[in-house]
Design a protein around this nucleic acid. Structure first.
Lengths: 137, 137
DNA sequence: CTATAATACCACCCGGAGGTAGCATATGCG
DNA sequence: CGCATATGCTACCTCCGGGTGGTATTATAG
């Protein structure tokens, strides 16, 4: 019932970039502002870059920028890159095949929650998170 | 968004004991029926015994029995013993303090799902799972 | 007594998540 | 140019969940 720490880091970093208004944001800036290990975040941002979520710019004054408009970056996009989406479609008891026709004992109780969460990460975008009035990231 | 494999094993084992009607069930029987590693399951059942979920009986014809009536054994009881309940109350972005008054950017979207899941594991009992018409465990 | 079962150790292996260190490479700017 | 700052990459480390193997003890039914 939890995100990988890497997914937390990725989401928080992107929200920070969205909210702060910094166009080109260095890993150092993110690391200091959000208290995330510098080297670890460097690798993570690099992966987000390879996936096209962010664009990198090397050299002095370099850093990362969010590639697409904020309302086009869904939580599921980020989570997919960082940890994959397998666990969000998985049977809670681990059965390979588990659906309405051939359910596990917990299927009826669980599928509603699973679908709700899946819908959440599919629909919520960085724009939504940036709009939220909360100031902690 | 997933149980530890140990929790899956524990729930499936207890559901099997409840459904099969076997009063005293050996680890060997469970291991064979549910395809769970024998040694691993032995350690797990021992922990469930120490926590009072099941009662053990040594010697030939020995094994484990579910201590309390089925409708008094909640999923949360089992999960608590096996993996702990920390992750079920945790902020999804990892903040120590995150509530309605001091939310993280995802709090509003997440808390509903979190509460729903917590309510599920608090309310669903072995009796509910045993009653489900599904035959796969 | 013997076979079976739980109980209690132990040592070990594997893979993945999280994290650290060093070095190479790119680039803006004095 | 030359330096500082930045990304990019490889290797390595620790911790933990999951899993295997062994050995010995205790309890009990037949």
């Amino acid at each position: 019932m939890r995100l990988f720490k890497s997914s937390e880091y990725a989401i928080r970093s992107l929200v920070y970039m969205a909210v702060s208004g910094i166009e080109v944001c260095s890993v150092k800036t993110l690391s200091d502002a959000l208290d995330i290990p510098y080297k670890f975040l460097g690798r993570l941002m690099s992966r987000l870059g390879a996936a096209g979520i962010v664009t990198s710019q090397q050299g002095k004054l370099g850093g990362y920028s969010i590639t697409r408009p904020l309302h086009e970056v869904h939580l599921a996009d980020i989570i997919d890159v960082v940890e994959g989406l397998e666990s969000y479609d998985r049977c809670i008891l681990g059965f390979e095949t588990c659906d309405d026709k051939n359910p596990c004992p917990l299927h009826d109780q669980w599928s509603g929650h699973k679908d709700g969460i899946r819908e959440m990460i599919d629909n919520v975008t960085l724009a939504d998170l940036a709009r939220s009035d909360c100031k902690r990231i």
